[in-house]
């Protein structure tokens, strides 16, 4: 018999938070959501908007998908049948319809916010970081509280790497180092930032 994980977090929250933000950073260590990372980090304004939108969508997706998996699809849920093979299709539909809904709401009620955030929303529905975080929450068997914290921390990790890389690339492009405006430069910049995290956390153990 499969047991449903509880609602309140029983995991140790601080290590979970640091893991999602640094040691298992979504962009640089787990390689999730790289398309937007390579494409948008030439400009720090766009990377700011994108990372805010991603953090928000990730957190809410975690809030929405956990109950649906554990109370509907899982054999321990109210239906009593094993529907876990439908998880991918369910999650992607939930994320896509949620993103669409948010886009409508923002466009209707807050045009300034729509201008700064709304244009990134359609990109997020097919961002692997968002689907990745909800799949990881299920795979690791986190409790409800821990899964929300994990998703939020992963979003923050996404954000700081986006901003750090955008800062490096933007400055180098402004100084006339043209290599960094292309894909190759983006990968070299990513190598540098990834090396920093990996070497720092191989010296300073958590």
């Amino acid at each position: 018999m499969i047991e449903t994980p509880g609602l309140m977090p029983t995991e140790n929250i601080f290590p979970l938070f640091v893991e999602a933000m640094f040691t298992k950073n979504f962009l640089l260590i787990m390689f999730l959501g790289l398309c937007s990372y390579i494409g948008l980090t030439t400009n720090s304004e766009t990377s700011k908007g994108m990372s805010m939108a991603v953090t928000f969508v990730m957190t809410v997706s975690a809030i929405l998908t956990w109950p649906i998996y554990h109370y509907l699809l899982s054999p321990a849920g109210i239906l009593g049948t094993d529907l876990t093979f439908l998880r991918t299709i369910c999650f992607i539909l939930i994320i896509a319809s949620f993103v669409q809904l948010v886009e409508f709401i923002i466009r209707r009620f807050s045009p300034p916010l729509y201008k700064s955030l709304g244009i990134y929303l359609p990109l997020i529905a097919t961002n692997c970081a968002v689907l990745g975080v909800v799949l990881l929450n299920i795979q690791e068997g986190y409790t409800y509280g821990a899964s929300i914290i994990y998703a939020f921390a992963a979003g923050l990790g996404f954000a700081w790497v986006m901003l750090a890389t955008a800062a490096v690339r933007e400055k180098l492009i402004m100084r006339g180092v043209d290599l960094f405006s292309g894909f190759i430069g983006a990968f070299f910049a990513a190598t540098m930032v990834a090396l920093i995290i990996v070497s720092y956390f191989s010296v300073v153990k958590l």
């Binding site: 999730l32 991918t88 992607i92 961002n127 692997c128 689907l131 799949l135 990881l136 795979q139």
Partner: peptide, 8 residues
């Protein structure tokens, strides 16, 4: 998780 992630 990279197999289910082929979806996106």
């Amino acid at each position: 998780i990279f197999v289910p992630l082929i979806v996106v």
